[in-house]
Design a protein around this nucleic acid. Structure first.
Length: 305
DNA sequence: AAGGCCCTCAACCGCAGACTT
DNA sequence: AAAGTCTGCGGTTGAGGGCCT
């Protein structure tokens, strides 16, 4: 037994809408509204269309304040960030972009943005692999044992937003707190960007620092950490660069230094060797307790994805 | 010029859940 | 409570246009 059809398929027109049909639908809805019943609407409006088709045409094309055409970089960022958090909930994503429809965003994602996003994830995964598998002598490094007295405070900073395709950075991160070292549902892009900035270990290991450390928040909250960029030194919003700035600010706080060094790079290729070659020479560990804690490799937290 | 291929995007389809009877 | 109906959503399709050979 199948579903009752919503309309008489045989007497219903399909395919692209003509300007006349558009005008009829628009006029009718502007005069009488939808009446809360799309199924009955086409007959009342004198249209040989399925109610669902009318609804879609109105919502995606005819209703006022619909924005068509190119998406801005800011919109790209918002879409990527939300996709990162909620995946294909297009209607929810559309609610964050005034004038854009879920259909528009979905099409845009599937045809263009997805490629940029995937490229960014692939690149950053590569970097992450280098970073998260440091050479064994890394753990014997003097600054690991006593980094408090040797803190170059070297932070990596990415200038060129295009190179990274601008995946957005979420402000709210779901965190698995059962093992604070293992961020089971940690947001991949967030993780990558943090690792990229050589700060995730830094922050993970900073639990003994004064109250504002990221790790303290992780362990205090039940399962969510809400990041508030403005708390730190970020001047712009949730862009990649602002997170770097944020982490940089946090690092300064944790390490209690007045003049951390920020190194700038313009592209991804340039920065990859820096991460893998200089990993020994940076104070990315950021042990705020002067290395008194015996942090081992297993105590670092690793993103899982 | 013609055919093939690819991309874009409007529109459709079917499902799930909400709502109504 | 159950069955029927409607709405909203995400996935998919296919027409049309542009580009390439």
């Amino acid at each position: 037994m199948g579903r009752t059809p919503c309309c008489d398929k045989a007497n219903v027109k399909k395919g692209p809408w003509s300007p006349e049909e558009d005008a009829k639908l628009k006029d009718f809805i502007e005069k009488y509204g939808t009446g809360g019943n799309w199924i009955a609407l086409p007959q009342k409006a004198g249209l040989r269309r399925c109610g669902k088709s009318c609804r879609l045409r109105w919502l995606n094309y005819l209703r006022p304040n619909i924005k068509h055409g190119d998406f801005s970089e800011e919109e790209d960022r918002i879409i990527c960030r939300l996709y990162d958090q909620i995946r294909t909930k297009w209607s929810v994503i559309a609610a964050h972009l005034p004038g854009r429809t879920d259909n528009d965003i979905k099409n845009y994602w599937n045809t263009k943005l997805k490629k940029k996003y995937m490229a960014a994830v692939t690149n950053l995964n590569h970097i992450n692999m280098n970073y998260l598998n440091p050479p064994s002598q890394f753990f014997e490094a003097p600054q690991f044992r006593n980094q408090y007295n040797s803190q170059p405070n070297f932070s990596l900073f990415m200038n060129n937003m295009d190179t990274l395709s601008l995946p957005g950075i979420p402000q709210t991160l779901p965190i698995n707190t059962s093992h604070h070292q293992s961020l089971g549902h940690y947001n991949p892009l967030m993780t990558e960007s943090r690792s990229f900035g050589l700060t995730s270990h830094h922050q993970a290991l900073s639990s003994g620092s004064s109250g504002g450390s990221f790790m303290s928040q992780i362990t205090q909250d039940h399962n969510m950490v809400t990041r508030q960029p403005q708390t730190y030194s970020s001047s712009s919003n949730n862009t990649f660069s602002s997170v770097m700035q944020l982490d940089y600010g946090l690092m300064g706080g944790v390490c209690n230094t007045n003049s951390p060094v920020m190194q700038c790079y313009d592209n991804l290729e340039e920065i990859k060797p820096v991460i893998s070659n200089n990993i020994m020479n940076t104070s990315y560990l950021g042990l705020d307790d002067g290395g008194k804690r015996n942090y081992g490799r297993e105590e670092m937290y690793y993103p899982s994805y």
